[in-house]
C-alpha cells in the first residue's frame, strides 16, 4: 500500500506545470524515505530530478518500494480539478494498475476522487555524479526568470560567466546584443531577495535559452533559485520545495565548434 497526503495540494499543481513542457511521462519512485522522479527530455539535453522527503506528507505510508508510471497529460487534467487550498492524497494498492487522487477542502466539506491508469514507462536512470561546482549562485527566482525571458529576445543562447566581479548573462543575435551583470548583494531586507555568489573558480558556459525558459516555469515553487556551474559540465538549476524537497534541472552546455 502506498499513501501520501500533501496538505498544500497547490505544490503538486505547480510541480506538474513546471515539467509538463519538458517531459510527457514520469515514474514516481516511492520508498519509505519519500518520492523521487527522474525524467529526461526526448532530445537527451536536459533532465528533471524531483526529490520529496516523506516528512513533507502527513500521513506517508509506503510498505514496499513501488514505481508508479504516469502520463503527465492525465495527471495535469486531474490535478487541475483540485482547488489551490485542497489537500491532495495519492494512493496506490499493490497489484492494481490504477492510482487514486483524493482532494479535500480545508473544512472537509468537499472531497473529490479521481483515478488514473498507470503506465509502464521505460526510462533510463542516469547516474548523476557528485560534483564540486566552480560557482554556485543563489538569486531571486523571478530575477532569473526575467533574465532568461529578456535574453531570449536577443538570441537562442545565453553565455553565463562568473568571476570575482559577479555573474554576467549575455546574449547576441542579428538584432544586437545585451549583457546583464549581478553582484553579490550587501544589505537586503528579505533573505529571498539576496544574491549570493560562491566562487571557487571563474567559469564561462553557454546554454540554450529554450530549456532555461522551460525551467523557469518552476518559479512559482520557490522565491529563490540556485545555479550551480562547472566548466564544460551540465548546469544545475535548483528550486527548493518547502523545506522537504527540491526540483532540479540539469542542462548540457553548448560546446564550441
Amino acid at each position: 500500500m502506498f499513501e501520501a497526503r500533501l496538505i498544500q495540494g497547490s505544490v503538486l499543481k505547480k510541480m506538474i506545470d513546471a515539467i509538463k513542457d519538458i517531459v510527457t511521462d514520469i515514474n514516481l519512485d516511492c520508498s519509505s524515505t519519500g518520492i523521487s522522479v527522474q525524467a529526461m527530455d526526448s532530445g537527451h539535453v536536459c533532465l528533471v530530478l524531483i526529490e520529496l522527503g516523506s516528512d513533507g506528507f502527513e500521513p506517508y505510508r509506503c510498505d514496499r518500494n513501488i514505481t508508479l508510471g504516469l502520463g503527465l497529460k492525465a495527471l495535469s487534467v486531474v490535478v487541475r480539478c483540485a482547488n489551490n487550498d485542497d489537500s491532495i492524497t495519492i494512493k496506490a494498492q499493490e497489484g492494481t494498475d490504477n492510482i487514486n487522487f483524493v482532494f479535500e477542502s480545508p473544512n472537509g466539506e468537499k472531497t473529490s476522487q479521481f483515478e488514473i491508469k498507470l503506465m509502464d514507462i521505460d526510462s533510463e536512470h542516469l547516474g548523476i555524479p557528485d560534483t564540486e561546482y566552480d560557482s554556485v549562485v543563489k538569486m531571486p527566482s523571478h530575477e532569473f526568470q526575467r533574465i532568461c525571458r529578456d535574453m531570449s529576445q536577443l538570441g537562442d543562447s545565453i553565455v553565463v560567466a562568473c568571476t570575482k566581479d559577479g555573474i554576467q548573462f549575455s546574449a547576441s543575435g542579428d538584432m544586437g546584443s545585451g549583457k546583464i551583470n549581478l553582484r553579490q548583494s550587501s544589505l537586503v531586507d528579505k533573505e529571498e531577495d539576496q544574491i549570493n555568489i560562491e566562487l571557487n573558480d571563474p567559469v564561462h558556459l553557454t546554454f540554450a535559452l529554450r530549456y532555461l525558459n522551460y525551467f523557469t516555469k518552476a518559479t512559482p515553487l520557490s522565491p529563490t533559485v540556485t545555479l550551480s556551474l562547472k566548466a564544460e559540465s551540465p548546469l544545475c538549476v535548483t528550486y527548493p520545495i518547502g523545506d522537504f524537497g527540491s526540483m532540479k534541472f540539469f542542462l548540457a552546455p553548448k560546446i564550441d565548434d
Binding site: L126, A208, P234, A252, I255
Partner: peptide
C-alpha cells in the same frame, strides 16, 4: 553558435 551537447555524455547509466 556552439553545438548542443547531450547529457548522456556527462551522466552515466
Amino acid at each position: 553558435k556552439g553545438t548542443q551537447a547531450s547529457l548522456m555524455s556527462f551522466f552515466g547509466k
